[in-house]
Every structure is written in C-alpha cells, then in structure tokens.
Amino acid sequence: MGISIELEVNGASVSKEVEPRLLLAHLLREELGLTGTKIGCDTSQCGSCTILLDGQAVKSCTVLAVQADGSEITTIEGLANGEYHPVQQAFWDNHGLQCGFCTPGMIISCVDLLGTNPQPSEDEIRHGLEGNLCRCTGYHNIVRAVQDAAETMNG
C-alpha cells in the first residue's frame, strides 16, 4: 500500500515509501526528523507548519506527502546558509518571537512575502501574514522584524 516518492528536502535527495494519507508535515517531522516544522492546529488555521514547496509557502499539514513527489522543499532547518537568513536575523534583532512555536512557520511566510513584495507597507505585512497565528507577540515586533528584513534585503 506504500507509494514511492522522491523529493529534495533542504538540498538533500529523499526517497520514501509512504502511506497515501500521510501528511507532508508528518513526513517531515516523523520520518525525516525535521521537527522545526510545527503542528499547531488541525484545521489549517495556524500556519505553524508552513514550509516552502518549490519556492512557495504552503501549509504542510494540508499537503499529502505524495503530492510533494518530485518537488523541492525548504524547511526552517534549511533556511540558514552559513549565516542566518535576513528574516531569521531580523526576528532575533527585533524580539519577533517569544515562545518560538509559531516562529518557523512565521519566518517561512515572511520569506515568501518579501519574495513577492520586497517593500511591503505595514498593512500589506499584516495582511500578508494572515495565515500565521502568533499568541505571544501581538504581532507588533513581527511587523518590525519584517520591515527590518525588507530593509536589509533591499539594501
């Protein structure tokens, strides 16, 4: 009953035989040990499981592992390349996180947001993050972090 899939995760080739119903989030966490991707809900609201699938931010709890066959995936573990990604750095510098649980998904969404809109207004940032919930920060410092990262990336 297993289905063979091949994909690239954080630059490494992965071949797996998976149950058809296995969620991509569970493939990453349980089978590949990439627990940086979090699961915070069961209705696709919270965004904690957000990853980049072929460069696009998606909620990995809403993608079947078999649907990711042949794709390239970047998780929070694959974002830093020798040094922190500017978005990671900006989250640290601006106290854009507290408990850290939403942070991997939030950072990935911010990377996607700045990829499509390099100079977002505050309003565009707030609406751009509507798929990611944070209960600790009130989003105030997350918005500052995105503004800071945008400045760095445009600089």
Binding site: G36, K38, I76, L97, P104
Partner: peptide, 20 residues
C-alpha cells in the same frame, strides 16, 4: 537580545512532541 532565540529561529529547539 534574547539568548533563547538562535535555537528557536533555526528550528533546532525541541518541544515535547519533537522528542523521540
């Protein structure tokens, strides 16, 4: 700046469900 953050922003921090 918080010393907690480097592990959290890189996905290295382990929460209960992350433990095996």
């Amino acid at each position: 700046r918080r010393r907690e953050d480097p592990e959290l922003i890189t996905g290295r921090a382990k929460y209960t469900d992350d433990l095996q």
